[in-house]
Amino acid sequence: MNLFDFFRGRQKTASASVAKERLQIIVAHERGQRSTPDYLPAMQQELLEVIRKYVNIGNDDVQVALENQGSCSILELNITLPDR
């Protein structure tokens, strides 16, 4: 800190708090992925192809989520069909 800064007052550069926030988000996201089985992305792709045989849907229209509740796992499929 030099003379100029001294009179201007201490300006906090808040980069550390930005770092913390970004890390908390990415780490939580990556931990979530870690607990899901490896086959999930491939399964999502295959489901997409099966549905496409009958209905024309986009890549993002099939959402697959796996939830663990105690000893029981729930596979949630959310398929958005196009407007008629």
């Binding site: 906090k12 550069t13 980069s15 890390l23």
Partner: peptide, 17 residues
Amino acid sequence: RVEKGEMLSVADVEEIL
């Protein structure tokens, strides 16, 4: 640098990991 807010603190790293 932690005091100036330029670096993650011990508590920050502990909390994240």
